[in-house]
Amino acid sequence: MDTQWPRWEVFKQDTPSKPHQAVGSVHAADPEHALLTARNVFARRPQAVSMWVARADDIHSWTREELLEGFPKVRADASLAPGRYLVFRKTSHKRSMTFVDFVGEVEARSPEEALVQAQATFGDLEALVWWIVPAEKVYRSDPSQETLESWFAPAKDKTYKQQQYYATVGSHVSKHRGGRGVEDEE
């Protein structure tokens, strides 16, 4: 029985000055459901101000290895209507909890042409992974103050999810006689 919903890639923005970054995926029946699920799965910690989702099937992806093996055939016929594409890129092998970062938009007649534009615009032939997504296929969380607060403020108040909350961090009990928390245990 095939009941699996489509897979959506999730992009989270930690602060207004940072780019949206790919953090993982969720399964959902529609964009609204995908955004809500993304919020529940990926914003249980305070670092979040905005989320985007895009269906995995709408994302065009190339790794550096794939591009070295052969550049994709670029379709740029005059018959194709130009459109906007969002460009994401991974540049480092360093250990990280995020994958590709949003770098900007390009206008092109096909995803392959968008890739060429992206390489030219963002001056990077060495990127490890490129993701190209048609702009109209990316769904964004509501930027209103009301949504911002109801979605992302609760995680900020839950300080007990931070390890710094616990007095015993990183050293032996002998150094923490009379640590916090006794009041509700006894």
Binding site: V23, G24, R44, R45, R95, S96, M97, T98, F99, Y160, K161, Q162, Q163, Y165, Y166, A167, T168, V169, V173, H176, R177, G179, G181, V182, E185, E186
Partner: peptide, 28 residues
């Protein structure tokens, strides 16, 4: 690797809250 980095960052609090609770009981 990325899933593990994210999990480790969150999981540390699980370890600390458990340790804190047991140490409290140990001197209770």
């Amino acid at each position: 690797s990325r899933a593990m980095v994210r999990i480790c960052a969150e999981e540390t609090f699980h370890h600390k809250q458990g340790k804190e609770m047991v140490l409290l009981y140990a001197k209770g």
